[in-house]
Design a protein around this nucleic acid. Structure first.
Lengths: 173, 173
DNA sequence: CACAATTGCGCAATCC
DNA sequence: TGGATTGCGCAATTGT
C-alpha cells in the first residue's frame, strides 16, 4: 500500500546536488493502518518516462535492472523495504525516548529515597552526638564531684525515634 | 537545480487510502515562492480527473479561493508555514530528548554523591555507637569497680576512628 | 556492491 | 483560522 508522489523542492541553496522530494502515502504493510476516517482520492498518474539525466560522465540513458529507476520494479521494492526500516527505526527511537524518560523518574525516586535516608542518618547522628556530649559532661561532673551518677543507662538507639528532638539540622548541599 | 513534482503511482494493493498530488515548487524555500510563469520543465502531469468520484459528497472540480488548491497560491503559503512549524517542532522535540538524556546523567551523578554521603554517615554513626557501647562498659566497670579511672575519652582499643567527631565535617565533593 | 539503519525533509491529517 | 504534533513516504547518508 503505498503510493507516491513527489515533488522536489529544492531548498535553499543547493549546491552540488541535492534535492528533495516528497510523498505521502498510507497504508501499512504489515498489520493495519489506515487512517480512520479518512478518505481521499487517489490520483492515478503515470509518469512519462522521465528520461533525462545524462549524468556526468558518459551516462547512458538506459539503465537496466539496477534501476528501472523510478517507475517500478526493484525500485519499488527497495522503497518498501526502506519504508519498513524507517518505521522500525522510528519506533525504536520513540521507545528509547520513553525509556529514558522513565529512567529519569526512577532516578528521581531513588534520589528522594536516598535523601530521606540521609536525613534520617543525620538525625541519628546528631542525637548520638548530643548524647555523647552529655555524657562527657556528666563524666566531668563525676570526676569533679562524684556522688551523683546514674547518668544514662539506657541508650535507646533504635531507629524509630522520630520523635522530636530538635536535632540540629544539618543540611547541606 | 530545481525539480519538481512527479508522481507515480504504484500500485500495490491499496485500499482506501490516500494519495496526493502535487506540483510546483519553488526556487527558494524561504518566503516567497511561487513559480511564476516561466519555469523549467515541469513534469508533464495531468491530473486526470478521476471522474466519478465515488464519494458521496458531491465533489466538484471547482474550487475558489479556499483552495486554488494545490497548485499555488495560498496553498503554497500554507505549506511553507507548516513546514516551518514542523521544523520548529522537531527541533524542540529533539532538544527535549537531549535534555532528558542529560537529566539522566545528572541524576545519576547526584545519586552517586548521595550514596557516598550515606556511606560516610553510616560509618560515622557506627563509630559513635561503638564508642558509646564502650563507654557504657567502662562506666559499668567504674561503677562496679571503681579504682581505675581513666575513663576519659581517649582509649579505644581497636578501631582507628578516623578522626572524628568534632562536629562533623560534611564533606562533599 | 548490497542492504539495513539513520536522518532531514515535505506533505497532510489532526490536535488544540 | 492557525500554529503544533504526528504518522508517513522519499531520498541521501552512514554503518555493516
Amino acid at each position: 500500500m503505498s503510493k507516491r508522489s513527489q515533488q522536489t523542492i529544492n531548498t535553499e541553496q543547493n549546491r552540488g546536488t541535492v534535492s528533495v522530494i516528497q510523498g505521502q502515502a498510507s497504508g501499512a504493510t504489515t498489520t493495519t493502518s489506515r487512517p480512520p476516517g479518512g478518505s481521499l482520492q487517489l490520483v492515478p498518474q503515470l509518469v512519462p518516462a522521465t528520461p533525462a539525466e545524462g549524468g556526468g560522465g558518459g551516462g547512458k540513458a538506459k539503465m537496466k535492472k539496477t534501476s528501472g529507476d523510478k517507475d517500478s520494479d526493484e525500485y519499488r521494492q527497495r522503497r518498501e523495504r526502506n519504508n519498513l526500516a524507517v518505521k522500525k527505526s522510528r519506533m525504536r527511537s520513540k521507545q528509547k525516548a520513553q525509556d529514558t524518560q522513565q529512567r529519569v523518574n526512577e532516578l528521581k525516586e531513588e534520589n528522594e529515597r536516598l535523601e530521606a535516608k540521609i536525613k534520617l542518618l543525620s538525625k541519628e547522628l546528631s542525637v548520638l552526638k548530643d548524647l555523647f556530649l552529655e555524657h562527657a559532661h556528666n563524666l566531668a561532673d563525676n570526676v569533679q564531684a562524684p556522688g551523683a551518677e546514674g547518668a544514662s543507662p539506657a541508650h535507646n538507639n533504635n531507629n524509630n525515634n522520630n520523635g522530636a528532638f530538635s536535632s540540629s539540622g544539618s543540611s547541606q548541599r
